[in-house]
Amino acid sequence: MLHNEPVFPSDRHALHEQHGYSAAIRSSDLLFVSGQVGGRADGSPEPDFAKQVQLAFDNLLAVLDAAGCGPEDIVDVTSFHTDPEVQLGTVMEVKKRIFPEAPYPNWTALGVTWLAGFDFEIKVIARCPAR
């Protein structure tokens, strides 16, 4: 087994190739998931913000699934928002569907000025069950 094993979902997105990064890296029982955005299969941003957030979470769940993990395995979340004051309510609605009850993961939300055409990005660290 590789010391750091790349993980990709079955429907690998164009952004991975365009920008040369792995969707996630498994190191022992930890999974470090790269920032997931609400990108369509061709890498373009979903223009509707609510749909973009849901798609980012869907992409995150697909990466977790490819590694044999689920949302319950997430330990730490970092999210990036281009307009947090306006967007946070929408993000929280989707978040509640993914994490409906405690215990919740750690979460840090950051306001940023640029996300390469996207308005929301989420990255996580998960502790995956033994394979």
Rank of each mutant, 00 (worst) to 15 (best):
A130G: 12
L15C: 15
S10C: 12
Y21F: 15
D76K: 09
E85Y: 08
P100N: 05
V124H: 07
R12M: 13
D42C: 03
M1C: 10
G35S: 13
P103R: 00
G117R: 10
Q36D: 06
I98Y: 08
I25G: 01
P129H: 15
P84C: 02
A66L: 04
E121N: 13
E85Q: 12
D48Y: 02
Y104F: 11
A24D: 00
G70E: 09
W114V: 09
H81F: 12
V86A: 15
D65T: 06
S44L: 07
S22E: 13
S79A: 08
A116H: 13
M92P: 00
D42L: 05
L115Q: 08
E72Y: 00
L55R: 13
P6H: 04
Y104Q: 08
T108R: 14
N59A: 05
R97N: 06
L61E: 06
L64P: 07
F99H: 02
A109W: 01
R40Y: 07
T90M: 08
L15Y: 07
I98G: 09
Q18V: 03
D83G: 02
G38W: 05
L64S: 06
V53G: 01
E93D: 13
G43M: 04
L30E: 12
L115Y: 02
D42P: 09
G35E: 11
H16Y: 15
H81V: 10
G35H: 01
P6G: 06
A116E: 11
P100S: 03
F120I: 14
G70V: 08
M1N: 14
E17N: 11
P9H: 10
L88M: 12
F80D: 05
F49V: 10
G20L: 05
A56F: 07
E17T: 14
D58E: 14
D11N: 15
D48F: 01
C69Y: 02
L115H: 05
F8D: 05
V86F: 04
F8E: 12
L88I: 13
T82E: 02
A24Y: 00
A109V: 12
M1I: 11
L15T: 14
G117N: 11
E121W: 09
A50V: 04
V124W: 06
F57S: 05
F8I: 01
E93M: 09
F57K: 08
Q52V: 00
T108V: 15
G43D: 03
L115A: 02
G39K: 06
G68I: 00
V33R: 03
P100A: 02
A109L: 10
C69A: 15
E93T: 13
E101I: 04
V63Y: 03
R127Y: 09
D11R: 14
L60Y: 03
D83A: 12
P103G: 00
P84H: 10
P6N: 03
D65W: 00
T108E: 15
G35W: 03
A109D: 15
M92R: 12
K123Q: 14
H13Q: 15
F49L: 09
